[in-house]
């Protein structure tokens, strides 16, 4: 097997995650899909790392995880406060930026 298959898998997972972002209305699920996309990227980075034979790809994946952790913390806080004020976690309900 060629390790490039990991990259195909990563592309597939990324696309699935993106489709989820577009399709789902529940903010929490949307957020999960974003995490899925990030993870797909991480998989690609790890595969690249193996491909090039150095650890820089893993470092990038590591930083991605850190950033994802920070993002999750803030994002979930936003979702919680959104739910508190609107009693709903639907992203479509927060559609005030229109006429």
């Amino acid at each position: 097997m060629n390790p490039v298959n990991y990259l195909y898998l990563a592309a597939l997972l990324f696309t699935i995650g993106a489709a989820g972002v577009l399709i789902r209305r529940n903010a929490i699920v949307v957020f999960m899909c974003v995490e899925l996309m990030l993870n797909a990227c991480n998989l690609a980075f790890v595969a690249f790392s193996r491909m090039h034979g150095n650890l820089d790809g893993q470092i990038i994946a590591f930083f991605t995880m850190v950033v994802a952790a920070a993002e999750v913390v803030v994002g979930l806080a936003i979702i919680v406060s959104l739910f508190r004020s609107r009693h709903s976690a639907s992203v479509d309900d927060a559609s005030l930026m229109k006429l």
């Binding site: 990991y6 898998l9 995490e35 991480n42 790392s49 590591f62 995880m65 952790a69």
Partner: peptide
């Protein structure tokens, strides 16, 4: 598991600890 298979042992463990352990629990 795939991380581990790709030789990223540290990341594989961190993935389980941080993602599945912390982030998903937060979710």
């Amino acid at each position: 598991v795939f991380y581990l298979a790709n030789g990223a042992y540290f990341l594989g463990v961190v993935q389980i600890v941080v993602y599945t352990g912390a982030i998903m629990m937060l979710f």
